[in-house]
Amino acid sequence: MSQMTRRLAFVVFASVVSVSPVLAQVDFSGEWAPRMWEDQPERVPGPDLGDYLGIPINDAARLRAEAWDASIQTLPEWQCRPHSADYIWRGPSQLRISKEVDPVSRDVVAFHAEWLRSVDRAIYLDGRPHPPADALHTWAGFSTAKWDGDILTVTVTHLKEGYLRRKGLPRSDQAILTEHWIRNGDYLTIVSIVNDPVYLTEPFIRTTDYELNLNQQIPPYPCGVVQEIDRKEGDVPHYLPGTNPYTKEFAIRHGLPVEATRGGAATMYPDFKEKLKTLPPAKQDGK
């Protein structure tokens, strides 16, 4: 290879590497299958009760989670509740992303994401503003997006109240979600950042992966409400403070200090490992 050729190769390499994020847009449309390489216990069976490790919650979130009783899911109002936009990435369902194209300009003006048990989630790229603050909040929220090179950065407002983890750890309806959609060939990575002024003290950041699946089909999933439990009208299942018997279950099973499982911003950082060494592991009450 001549010196000139080598020089040319370097110029091309440097140009491509430094310029490509500015020019490119990525097609996210397609059928995506979940790949549960991260946090599998949360994504299929569901998180353990009382496991808030590494989640920057405040005391209010912790108290509310400890009042949560799984039986609340049997109330007619909650039997068909879908996961909210911030949580549904973590579910076990396959994902379909379709794109909406302006017939004249041929610009991609929106992506639509849907999962097995979700409502349609539109992500608008046409520059429209978010609705007024007093408009209805929904499970999908209201999403707009802009390109940062190859990465699609999405801002989601107007979320209905949801959960940080689906066994009672709340996320308020005042939360704002930022997402970064990143496609590497057949792999899709979603970086999700939840800012919740009610229940979080710092942003809660998660990544979730999917892989392109050409043979996938998402079937319809109608949901019907039934009467599951004969209970007194108006009852809402919950634990009174201090009466939930399951709050230490996770800590005891894994030999962890209870304090660590209570979560909070401090448990996200490496320094906490030092503190962990000073804390006794959880034991059954009375032992």
């Binding site: 440097a14 590497v17 430094s18 609705p131 007024p132 090179g149 950042i193």
Partner: peptide
């Protein structure tokens, strides 16, 4: 070139600060 590219990616992945509670809603 690599440094410039890294800077672009880093900027793209910049984590929103915890103070981000105001979205671009119609006020």
């Amino acid at each position: 070139a690599v440094i410039a590219h890294t800077a672009v990616i880093a900027q793209e992945l910049k984590v929103a600060p915890s103070t981000l509670v105001h979205a671009p809603m119609i006020q």
